[in-house]
Design a binder for these strands. Structure first.
Lengths: 206, 206
DNA sequence: GCAAAACCGTACCGGCGGTACAGGAGAGCA
DNA sequence: TGCTCTCCTGTACCGCCGGTACGGTTTTGC
């Protein structure tokens, strides 16, 4: 029903912010229900245990993540016909989006789960793995299109190249948080963007 | 005294493995003392609270990290006179070292702390920040030497370029863990290595 | 052999994850 | 109007955990 979904969403909102700041272990259910204005029984009506909360949280995060990627790169695709130019524009748009976040990227739930593997069941770890594989497929598709048109200055494994996008984003988030420099992440993405540009720039052998 | 240090080290060993697998919140002191074969009183004799355990853990991890970097890149420096070749060899050695870890990289404590910021005091966060800054200085120094000899195909902010090393490592660890593919991390480092090679390869304008 | 270091044992506190279960308010429908 | 289903509230309870307090004991270095 309507009301139930609304409460559930509110719990997830509060939980997501808390988990990204303090981790799963550091986030108490009691604190979540206090901030949500709900009772303990109410919480356990929506989620059987903390594991199920994590699962719902992760699924929602991944969905939202995919939506953002879809928007950015489809917009880039609309503006640029060339697959390389479109990809480079997408990275630029992504960098700008992240640069506009006032407090920087709040953190990636997938990364959080990575550092908690033993705390959750295999299902959650599998969801996490599938998310990373989806990222790989997404960017691999883009690189495949680019390779159909351009000759790279060096040969790469396409999957590894595709993974590099996720690597830079995840690593950039960690570094941004460690350094307390929110602008580090968008900067790293632009560095990667330049590398990609360089890779497909016609060189002496072209 | 001798015995005290030994016990302290044993606690830190057990704690480090546990924290990297379950996070700080997911690691109980009771489980640490059980595995170490020590009593609760004994634990609190060595560490005032969990925060101090985290501090000691982080400091030790960073020291060890620095030692490994020192070894690898000084060995590379001995083998190669050219700063670029030396840096590229260092990345290769690092990749091989990580590739030889049977279960993959156990995880970076600096990254773990990032995702727990609100759980620890400012001192720990500052230690974390200084660690990331030390990485930046280390690799910035290498790039400075390279720039003194080579002309890059594209201009970069040297700090951002230096940060890219840490970004790729941290991101590679996350992706490796998420994908459950230990070989992903060394692979990503080699991709980055190729990018660096590309950057300083003489092109059409050279 | 003596003092300091390095513990052990025990008892206790409050918070937290989780369970159990009874009950109630409100919406939708017959 | 009454019935049912969803969406909760309230209360009581369990065991684990972080942390404190404190007295006692063994080990070590000198």
């Amino acid at each position: 029903m309507r009301k139930g979904e609304e409460t559930r969403t509110r719990i997830l909102d509060v939980a997501e912010a808390a988990v990204l700041q303090k981790g799963f272990g550091g986030t108490s259910i009691e604190e979540l229900i206090a901030e949500t204005g709900i009772t303990k029984s109410g919480f356990f009506y929506h989620f059987r245990d903390k594991n199920e909360l994590a699962k719902a949280l992760l699924n929602r995060y991944i969905e939202n993540d995919e939506r953002i990627y879809d928007e950015i790169f489809s917009r880039a695709r609309d503006l640029m016909d060339d697959p390389l130019q479109s990809f480079l524009l997408g990275l630029k748009l992504l960098s700008e989006l992240l640069s506009d976040l006032p407090n920087g990227h709040p953190g990636c739930l997938v990364a959080t789960i990575c550092y908690y593997e033993r705390l959750f069941d295999r299902e959650i770890q599998e969801i996490n793995r599938q998310a990373a594989l989806t990222w790989r497929r997404r960017f691999r598709g883009m690189f495949d299109e680019i390779f159909a048109v351009y000759t790279p200055r060096e040969q790469f494994d396409v999957d590894q190249l595709a993974d590099m996008v996720s690597t830079v984003i995840e690593g950039g988030i960690v570094l941004s948080k460690a350094l307390k420099e929110p602008q580090s992440l968008p900067g790293q993405i632009l560095v990667f963007r330049s590398f990609v540009k360089l890779l497909f720039q016609p060189g002496q052998h072209a």
